[in-house]
C-alpha cells in the first residue's frame, strides 16, 4: 500500500486504532486499581501516571509536525487533533484526581495550594491554558476563528508544554532525571521548529533580496 497517499478508509481505520491505543494508559490504571496492583499508595500512583501521560501526549502532539516534515507523511497532521484532545483528556483526569482522590474537594486547602505551591500554580495554569485549545478544536471553531487566529491561539501549546515540564520539575524531591528527560525532548521538538523558521526566513531573504530584515 501507499503510505504517502492512504485512502480515506485507511485513515479512518488508523484513527480508530489510535483512539483505542490512547485509552490503554487509562485502562491500565482502572484494571490495576480494581486488582489492587498499584502499590502501597495507589492514589499517588494514579495521580503521577495521569500526569506523566498528559506530558507524553503533549510531546506526542508536538512531534506530529516535525515527524511530518521529516517523513513526508503529511496525513499525520490529521491525527494531531485527537492527540491534542487526549493530552487535554489526561490533564483533566490528572486534575480531577488531585481535586477528588488527593484533596477530596477540600476547597480551602486546594485554593491555598494553587496560590502557595509554585508547582501546583504551574500545573493549574497549564490546565487553564489548555481549556480554550480543547474548546476550539472542532472544525466549526476553526472556521469561526479563521485559520490565522486559530493557529495563533493554538501556539499556546508551546507555553503549556513548557509550564507542564516545569510543574514536574518543581514537584520532584531530589532526583530530576525524569523531568530533565522531558525538558530535553521538549527542547528538541521546539528546537526543530526554531531551526525551520530560521531557515525559512533565510530562504525568503534569498528569494527577495530587497526585503527588510
Amino acid at each position: 500500500m501507499d503510505w504517502h497517499q492512504p485512502t480515506a478508509r485507511r485513515i479512518t481505520a488508523i484513527k480508530l486504532a489510535l483512539f483505542l491505543l490512547c485509552l490503554l494508559p487509562l485502562a491500565r490504571l482502572v484494571i490495576g486499581a480494581a486488582q489492587d496492583e498499584l502499590g502501597a499508595n495507589p492514589i499517588e500512583f494514579i495521580t503521577r501516571s495521569l500526569g506523566t501521560w498528559t506530558l507524553n501526549f503533549l510531546l506526542i502532539t508536538l512531534a506530529v509536525t516535525p515527524l511530518r516534515h521529516l517523513t513526508g507523511l503529511h496525513w499525520l497532521l490529521r491525527l494531531r487533533r485527537m492527540l491534542g484532545l487526549y493530552a487535554f483528556f489526561y490533564a483533566a483526569l490528572h486534575l480531577a484526581t488531585y481535586l477528588w482522590l488527593d484533596q477530596f474537594f477540600d476547597w480551602a486547602a486546594i485554593a491555598k495550594d494553587i496560590v502557595k505551591r509554585p508547582f501546583i500554580t504551574a500545573g493549574f495554569s497549564a490546565f487553564v491554558l489548555l481549556v480554550p485549545l480543547a474548546a476550539t478544536s472542532n472544525n466549526a471553531m476553526v472556521r469561526k476563528l479563521g485559520g490565522r487566529r486559530w493557529t495563533r491561539l493554538h501556539r499556546a501549546i508551546y507555553a503549556i508544554a513548557i509550564i507542564g515540564v516545569i510543574h514536574y520539575w518543581w514537584l520532584v524531591k531530589k532526583d530530576i532525571t525524569q523531568p530533565l528527560l522531558y525538558a530535553v525532548l521538549l527542547g528538541l521538538l521546539l528546537g526543530f521548529r526554531a531551526v525551520r523558521l530560521a531557515r525559512e526566513r533565510q530562504r525568503q531573504l534569498a528569494t527577495y533580496p530587497g526585503m527588510p530584515k
Binding site: N41, D102, A109, R117
Partner: peptide, 16 residues
C-alpha cells in the same frame, strides 16, 4: 517550602 505538612495520607486509607 514546596508542599503543605498539615495533612498526610496514611497508607491504606482513602481520606487524608
Amino acid at each position: 517550602p514546596r508542599w503543605s505538612q498539615a495533612t498526610e495520607r496514611r497508607i491504606g486509607e482513602f481520606l487524608k
